[in-house]
Design a protein around this nucleic acid. Sequence first.
DNA 1: AACTCGGGGGC
DNA 2: GCCCCAGAGTT
Length: 340
Amino acid sequence: MDLSTKLRAWYRFNARKLPWRETTDPYAIWLSEVILQQTRVTQGLPYFDRFLETFPNVESLAASSEDKLMKLWEGLGYYSRARNLHKGAKYIVENGFPTSYDEWLKVPGVGPYTAAAIASFALHEEKAVVDGNVNRVIARLFAIHEPVNSTAGRKIIEEKASALIRKNPPAEHNQAIMELGALVCSPKSPDCSICPWNTECLALATGLVNTLPVKIKKTKVMEEDLYYTAIYSLNGLYVQKRGVDGIWKSLYELIPISGNSLSLEPDMKLSSERFNTTHLLSHRKLNLHIDVIEWPIQSPELWEGYTLVRWNDIDNLAFPKPIRHWLDNNLLPLRLGSED
DNA sequence: AACTCGGGGGC
DNA sequence: GCCCCAGAGTT
């Protein structure tokens, strides 16, 4: 029995039941693949359900406001995915659904992995997916020492993956090899005893399972301070939408100035305490410092660039995780008694 | 080819 | 702490 046949036999018996495997709708499959980029299945699942419920088709997604889309994406991270999803929806409404791997590659936010996934799942095109799971499974199966995130390594993995899928059912094969990486051939302590490929695996035969795959290390995580002032009044809270490039683009934030450097008018009350919290990104360590000012003037506007959001509307805006956390736990409770 | 972009989970 | 996750876009 050849490799793919053994793999798929294992898959048919051990596959998780996941909603995007129950559909042939290219829209739902596309949506799921974007949500799952660099994201665990368990983390993406509730987002997939909410998106499909809110935007049941590509037309409704394309017609959404950016704020509503970002709010639905809030907390999932890599927010450019949400913005590209929006662009992609408009592109598809304009041009129709792509009908091949090459056409899917033209959709914003769709790269080699996602195009291969959709082309194989929805169009049954014989195109091998290469994601983190496939990198690991193939590097071990063929004992590839070349770094999987180098140009040379990617080329080797791609060739091996393409050879494995050849003349086999593309959708089932791609699902199966990723499922093997997720459930059996895991990064740490893989369960080789139950692996359908344990008699063919070169890494297992040579004792290299725990040293493969090889990866080029990423850069060091730098530390960074963020100073905010939460200015609020009876009317609501002053916020700003992040428009510049960098983290959290198109999400909302507090006023990015420390309270100490604000020119305080006599009747402004600066809270004596400053909230400090750290927030870890994969590539940065953020130290957030938040001052709080109660603004007594019931003015509809503060100054150019900042907008007053009503207390009841704050939940409709997407904030970065640490700011949302702080709002929910420290600021919003203050307003509970004084809601109009 | 190297960097940037989030947040969560596992150990 | 460190690594990884159904990667893509930019420089």
